[in-house]
Write a protein that binds this DNA or RNA. Structure first.
Lengths: 186, 186
DNA sequence: AAGTGCATGTAACCGGTTACATGATTCT
DNA sequence: AGAATCATGTAACCGGTTACATGCACTT
């Protein structure tokens, strides 16, 4: 359901877009918002076209199939925004793993946290670069700036959390033997 | 895959737990980390037991089936933590929707953002209450505190973002007619 | 001419959701 | 006695991933 809305949002905001363009968006600006593999995107575009929510334009070079949104597609998008409420279910493997960190040696826990810190710092740099590429003069970009700002703030939260967590784990008492018996790096 | 690890983490950290207990955890402390419906949890527990990663204890009152983690389960959990890296793919419908907000009237955009702000504030209160219930003297709770702190920081980021976004939308130029033609509340 | 990146797809499988079903225990 | 909550499950379906397949265009 929401994949359709994600595709309609991208197509409506970024002008005519092909499956390839959309896949790049999922890897770029939408990385922390929505994701889908190419094998899911292409059939879904066909379905949206069959439902009349998007329209295929003339085939471009290299077999590109650019789509544009239809009036009906816009209507459906607006309807979704105004009459349904957002699903808040989430999955975050970084945080899931942190719940289990008492089972490994502090050095291993810190190694994990450092890796996560670096990852989120890198993504944060990417997000800030993306932000610079947006034009506040364009209505669609103004909305995109809202989304990008959310991404930046969430990434900043993760980076500062990881920094704090590394310090916190350093202060954990040794717990000689019990939780870590049988652990690899013993 | 990660559902198994989520279940092992909960069972290892919280003492013997039944499917019902675990479902409550998914609705509570793990709400923003991992989620699974009861219909997925019960068969998965049977599978974990068949694989020898958890062990069923004596059936309790009301048909409760409490499980405890086995040595093999602990080994698998530690192995997952130390030899594989975290999947960072995410989906966040709140932020996805914000990318499309230029398509609706500013009042509708703000109504959405206000709703999200309230939702995240409420969840933040819940997370802070959860934090108070944890005992830093217990190793498992110390790790849980890392996870809960991540949740709090992410929720704080979302609340402050929503506040900022409401103000930002208020300053958007009117864009008389173009993007909003055909929109419901015209 | 070979290698890389562009660009789209199919089929099989698995993870996850929805709808449905059952019965015991506690509370009012 | 009836309602609410505890507690576990099955079956069908759908959304999403993995593995595989194809061919063109641009660069070196």
């Amino acid at each position: 359901m929401s994949l359709q809305m994600a595709l309609l949002t991208l197509i409506s905001s970024g002008g005519p877009r092909s499956g390839y363009d959309l896949n790049r968006d999922f890897e770029g600006i939408l990385k922390f918002v929505w994701h889908a593999k190419p094998t899911q995107v292409y059939p879904e575009l066909r379905r949206l076209a069959a439902e009349g929510l998007i329209r295929e334009q003339a085939e471009g070079s290299r077999g590109r199939r650019p789509y544009e949104i239809t009036e009906e597609g816009l209507r459906v998008l607006r309807d979704w925004l105004t009459t349904t409420s957002a699903d808040h279910s989430q999955r975050n493997e970084t945080v899931l793993r942190s719940f289990a960190l008492w089972l490994v040696h502090p050095e291993e826990a810190q190694a994990f946290l450092r890796e996560e810190m670096e990852y989120h710092r890198a993504r944060l740099r990417g997000m800030r670069a993306t932000k610079k590429g947006l034009d506040p003069g364009r209505p669609a970009d103004r909305a995109a700036l809202l989304g990008v700002e959310a991404g930046i703030r969430r990434l900043e939260a993760m980076v500062s959390w990881a920094e704090w967590a590394i310090d916190t784990v350093a202060d954990w008492p040794a717990d000689t033997g019990d939780a870590l018996s049988g652990s690899g790096a013993g």
